[in-house]
Design a protein around this nucleic acid. Structure first.
Lengths: 154, 154
DNA sequence: TTGCTTGCAAATGATTTGCACTGCT
DNA sequence: AGCAGTGCAAATCATTTGCAAGCAA
């Protein structure tokens, strides 16, 4: 099945990247990758621990640091108390975030390829004019999520 | 002079917004606004304190919180240790950020009005499809700043 | 006087780290 | 055996908060 292959592929890629850096793909790390790939958007550490209750908090932090170092995980910081973690874009595809100003939830969204292209070329121009070497961009769209809108309506 | 009027205008606007919320525009707050308007990009708390040495750290944090509450200051969080603070966009104009991955410095940049419009309309479409109410967006362009590029060249 | 501001010192809380132990290889 | 990974408890450090004193209305 396509689904199973996708999951197998993901773990395979992660395994390879870790090996390439002389790191092991341990059960803990597998659990983290599983949890991250299972959710629609970025996840905070407490949420992650709910989905992998056998993991110690410190191990989760340590493994996330390793996975980030190797380019498997990306760490996001919004205003909220906790940082968010997600799989790197080259594993999941380029996307952006809807960030709820009230509850802090984060949801993935994508823009059209056409718009991304205009954006990239504008960024290239402007960055080069400043002597800046752009590597990637992120767009955060702040506002109210549907849940919070429903709540404020009563 | 235009410069003086601009500065006077800024303080006047800040004063008005504070009064509207029953807050005072104290000397400390004035110093903070001065420091923020003096620099080209967002500033961390330690940097801010260098420019206003008479301010106590806790007062700086407290006043920044008030100023943020009233919509005069925006607080940014990137990966770095410290948060960044800048004047709100309706005081300075809409802009985005070049964020250096090595040294953490942040520089302001603007995109063309045309591109901003395409972006806004794409965001509106996509957000509405999710029942999300967008308020504003931010674009962070990550990469290497000119200083760090020069350093790595030797 | 009454209440907002301030500075100092102490508290908070997410994240990091030291250390001893377990388990690959 | 030898070293990477783990859990626990303790440390770190930006930011927040309690409190007593200063200052404006």
């Amino acid at each position: 099945m396509a689904t199973m292959n996708a999951a197998a592929d993901l773990h395979h890629q992660v395994d390879e990247r870790l090996r390439a850096r002389d790191q092991r793909y341990t059960e803990s790390r597998r659990q983290i990758v599983e949890a991250l790939s299972a959710t629609a958007g970025p996840v905070t550490l407490p949420t992650l621990l709910e989905q992998a209750p056998s993991l110690a908090q410190s191990s989760a932090y340590r493994n996330l640091a390793v996975l980030e170092e190797v380019g498997i995980v990306r760490r996001l910081v919004h205003g909220a108390d906790h940082a968010f973690y997600e799989l790197a874009e080259d594993l999941t595809g380029h996307h952006h975030h809807l960030v709820c100003e009230r509850c802090g939830s984060v949801q993935d969204v994508t823009l059209s390829a056409r718009l991304e292209q205009s954006l990239d070329s504008a960024i290239d121009d402007l960055a080069k004019a400043q002597g800046f070497a752009p590597r990637h961009h992120t767009i955060d769209i702040h506002g109210l999520c549907s849940v919070c809108i429903a709540e404020s309506t009563h």
